[in-house]
Simulated scan of single mutants.
Amino acid sequence: MPSGLGLWALQYPGREERLGESPCTAMEPLLQDLIQGIGALPSVPFVLLGHSMGAAVAFELCLHLQRHDRAPVALLLSSHPPPDEVQQSRIHQSDDRQLWLEMVRVGGTPAAVLELPDLLRVLTPALRADYQAIESHAFTTGDRIRSEVVVCVGDSDPDVPADRAGGWQRYCEREVQLRVFEGGHFYLSAHRRRLIAEAARCLSPYLDTSAAALDASTP
C-alpha cells in the first residue's frame, strides 16, 4: 500500500474469525452489522470497495453513510450490474452441489473443491446465505450516490458485460468512471495493484504520498 493509505476489511458474520456466528440471509441485518463495524473505525477519508455481491452491499452502505454525513470519498463497484439490470435468480434454493457449480462457473472456485466434502460442509451455509441475501434484495432507488463512483469490470465476465456497467450512472450524481480489466468475474485477483492505485488516486488529495508512489514493486 502507498504510504499513508491503510486497508480495512469488513468481515461478514459466519466467516473466518466470525465462523461461529450465523450468516445473514437478508441484506438489512448485514448492513446493520457493517454499519456498526464502520462506526468503530477512525473518522478519516476513505474509499469503499465492494466486489460482486459486495458491490451491492457497498452501494447500500454508501447511501446510508451519506444520509448520516459520513460518505466515502469514492465508491468502487466491482463486477456487479446496475440495480435495474440485475437478472432474477433462485440459486440459493439449489442443492449444495449446484450451488458450488455456480461458483465454479463464475471462476471464483476451482472445481477440485467439489471433492472436499468436509470443507464444503463448513462453507456452504455462508455461501447459501449470501445468495439468499442478494437474490431477495430490493435496491434502494430513491437517493443517488454523491461520492465519486468508479465501476470496475472484467472484459470477459459473462454476467457483467462492460456495455451494461455504464448503467450505474442512473444511480449517481457525478459522472461515473468505468475501468475495464482483462479477465472474468474475478479479474481483481490479477489486478489488485491497479485497484489499489485507483483507490489511492481518489484519496490522493488527502495523502502525503500520491497515487504515483504506487509502482509494480509494491507488495
Rank of each mutant, 00 (worst) to 15 (best):
I134W: 03
D215P: 03
C24F: 08
S78N: 14
L34A: 12
E21Q: 13
S189P: 09
Q87N: 09
L7H: 11
S79F: 09
V180D: 03
R90G: 11
I134T: 05
D84I: 06
R128I: 04
A71N: 04
H185K: 04
D69H: 11
L195S: 00
D215R: 02
Q98S: 13
G183Y: 03
L120Y: 01
H80R: 14
I91Y: 07
G107F: 07
S189A: 13
S94D: 02
S3H: 07
G167W: 12
S89H: 11
D163V: 11
L99V: 01
A56G: 02
I35M: 15
A126F: 06
C202E: 07
V180E: 07
S136P: 01
L127S: 02
S156P: 06
V160R: 07
G108F: 00
E16H: 08
R70E: 05
P158S: 14
R201V: 06
S204L: 08
G184H: 06
L127M: 13
F46D: 04
A71C: 05
L48D: 06
R194N: 09
R164W: 12
R201Q: 13
P23E: 01
Q132Y: 00
L77S: 12
L127F: 08
R179H: 03
E21V: 03
V104W: 04
Q169S: 15
Q66S: 02
I91P: 01
R144L: 08
T109P: 01
G6K: 13
G50Y: 02
A58Q: 00
L127V: 10
G6L: 10
P125K: 08
C202K: 06
R164F: 08
R179Q: 06
G37Y: 07
V113H: 03
R97W: 03
M1L: 09
F181C: 05
D143W: 08
M1K: 02
R144T: 12
E148F: 04
R164A: 09
E182D: 12
G184P: 07
D143I: 09
V160E: 12
V104L: 05
M53H: 00
V149E: 01
L5W: 00
R128L: 08
S89Q: 15
G167I: 15
E175N: 15
A211S: 13
W8H: 15
P161V: 13
A40F: 05
G166E: 10
L63F: 02
Y171C: 10
P161I: 11
E16R: 05
P2C: 02
H68P: 01
G6N: 14
A26R: 15
S78G: 12
A56Y: 00
L203W: 01
L114Y: 01
R179P: 00
R144Y: 04
Y131C: 00
A58Y: 00
D163G: 04
R193A: 04
G183Q: 05
T124G: 12
Y12S: 11
G154M: 09
R70M: 04
A213M: 05
L34N: 11
E85W: 07
M103I: 07
G54M: 00
L127K: 04
E182P: 06
A162V: 14
R144E: 10
R121N: 12
A165H: 03
V86T: 11
L41Q: 11
Q66A: 01
G142L: 12
H137P: 09
D163R: 14
S43Q: 14
I196T: 08
L31A: 03
D33A: 05
S78T: 15
I145Q: 02
V150S: 03
E60W: 02
T25S: 14
S78V: 15
